[in-house]
């Protein structure tokens, strides 16, 4: 659609601008302020320049957390995206009771408060009272997510797959539903195989929504806090301490305001940079599609 130039449209955007400025810019400025100062208490601050940034960039602890975070995000993206597409291809296409039921049940995990997701899996994975833990234990696996870091990782990854694959399913399903029947009929006349229908009709049509899915899953998994906090509390040791958990520990637990602020800014910039790349690709593919 062609848009009309109209500078007065700014007045319509103004409320959003003021509100978001209040809840984003003021706090962000506080963070910037802390990141270049040190304090001995009593509200006396002095300028330290970029010292905290250097400390954070060279900190072993942050590197480890970043490594774990990147690995986690990579693993869950490579499970959730293909699995989500696969399930979406099998969603019922005709409207009816069965398809409504599928939609509601598939969407349900997304609406559960994140700490409850944590609680659910905390209970489900325990070897004394949880179905999963109990079964694995009885089958002879050495499974205990509070002590074994491999088990802790496995639990958190399965939890995230359980929690968020539905998002990918729903997005892909929306993409699939927008494909007109004529495309499939044409493919049938050409005697296209199931694979080439997927590769040349369904996948290109889903490209837009899949990009949104990857973008959302990337952002949210990179900021994950609540679920691992409830299930493992970042342990055993530091095995599941992801970036947000580390940050909250540093800022609110130890009250190291300077390093925490510098850490925050770097963290935010990393997310911003990668998201910007996705966003640019998305806008371009939007334009190509017209």
């Amino acid at each position: 659609m062609k848009k009309t130039p109209n500078q007065k449209a700014w007045f319509m955007v103004l409320p959003v601008l003021l509100l978001v400025a209040f809840s984003a810019i003021i706090p962000l400025m506080t963070v910037v302020n802390y990141s270049v100062q040190d304090t001995f208490g009593n509200n006396e601050f002095f300028w330290v320049g970029l010292e905290w940034f250097e400390e954070i960039l060279h900190s072993e602890r942050i590197h480890d957390a970043l490594g774990r975070q990147a690995l986690f995000t990579l693993i869950i993206l490579s499970i959730e995206i293909p699995l989500g597409i696969f399930v979406a291809l099998h969603m019922p296409k005709k409207n009816g009771l069965w398809s409504s039921l599928c939609l509601v049940l598939v969407a349900l995990p997304l609406l559960i408060p994140w700490n409850v997701v944590g609680t659910i899996w905390q209970i489900f994975g325990r070897i004394d009272i949880g179905l999963l833990g109990y079964t694995l234990d009885k089958m002879g696996f050495d499974y205990n997510y509070t002590q074994d870091s491999f088990a802790a990782w496995a639990t958190i990854i399965i939890m995230d797959v359980w929690h968020w694959t539905s998002l990918v399913v729903l997005l892909s399903y929306a993409g699939l539903k927008s494909i007109p029947d004529a495309y499939y009929q044409a493919a049938k006349i050409d005697q296209a195989s199931r694979w080439s229908i997927f590769r040349y009709i369904e996948l290109p049509k889903m490209k837009g929504v899949l990009l949104i899915a990857v973008l959302l899953r990337f952002m949210d998994s990179f900021m994950i806090y609540t679920e691992p906090f409830v299930v493992t509390g970042g342990g055993p040791g530091n095995a599941t301490t992801f970036l947000s958990i580390d940050l909250v520990k540093m800022a609110i637990g130890q009250f190291d305001l300077g390093p925490a602020a510098a850490f925050s800014l770097i963290y935010f910039l990393v997310i911003l940079l990668i998201s910007w790349v996705f966003y640019t690709i998305m806008v371009h593919s939007d334009k190509e599609a017209g």
Partner: peptide, 8 residues
């Protein structure tokens, strides 16, 4: 990340 904004 909400963690960045919690303290401010």
């Amino acid at each position: 990340p909400p963690a960045v904004f919690a303290l401010p």
